[in-house]
Amino acid sequence: MIYDEIRNISRYRGISSNLDVAIDFLEKTDLNSLPLGKTEILGDKVFANVMEAQAKDEKELSFEIHKKYMDIQIDIEGTELIFIGLDGFHEKEPFSPEKDFGSCTAEKSARLKMGPGRFVVCMAQEPHLPSAAANEDRRLKKCVIKVAVED
């Protein structure tokens, strides 16, 4: 996991070439100008999903796991909590390679407060629980950039 302010994202260049493509995109793009839905950046290797959602109580959500992609999670409007699973994982929904998705619970986790100006990179195979309510106003507009793990 990488958790920082978006203005510092260039510090993380060199981890992978696909992540560098995503960083270039974020440095050049006003996320407010992106349409809802999918925006291709580098085919199926790097793409953005912009969505509107309602944050939920943490107990209503599950940790998700991806193996093919890292997630860069960014709040455009609103503020959410994102939890990163640290230990004590128990599978809920078996992992589907076709969907690149599985879910689990975690006995221990780190809590990150998001909001405009912050980002988190959830590494592949790192359980994360996004869209948890941070306050009374639960409206979110967010961008999730999917970054393929390189072989």
Rank of each mutant, 00 (worst) to 15 (best):
N32D: 14
N32I: 11
G37L: 09
K38P: 07
K38M: 12
T39D: 04
E40K: 10
E40V: 03
I41Q: 12
D44G: 08
D44R: 15
V46P: 02
F47P: 02
F47T: 05
N49K: 14
N49G: 02
V50D: 05
M51Y: 11
K56R: 10
D57N: 14
D57F: 14
K59V: 11
E60L: 10
L61W: 10
E64F: 00
H66W: 02
M70R: 08
I72A: 00
I72L: 05
Q73M: 07
I76T: 06
G78T: 01
T79V: 09
E80R: 00
I82Y: 03
I82A: 05
F83R: 11
I84D: 00
L86Y: 08
F89I: 02
F89V: 03
F89T: 05
H90N: 11
K92R: 10
E93H: 03
E93S: 02
E93N: 05
F95G: 04
S96C: 13
P97V: 04
P97N: 03
K99G: 00
D100N: 08
D100V: 09
F101W: 07
S103H: 02
A106E: 14
K108C: 15
K113I: 08
M114R: 01
G115P: 01
P116S: 12
P116V: 02
G117R: 09
G117H: 10
R118V: 01
F119K: 03
V120Y: 14
V121G: 04
V121W: 09
Q125E: 10
P127Q: 11
P127Y: 08
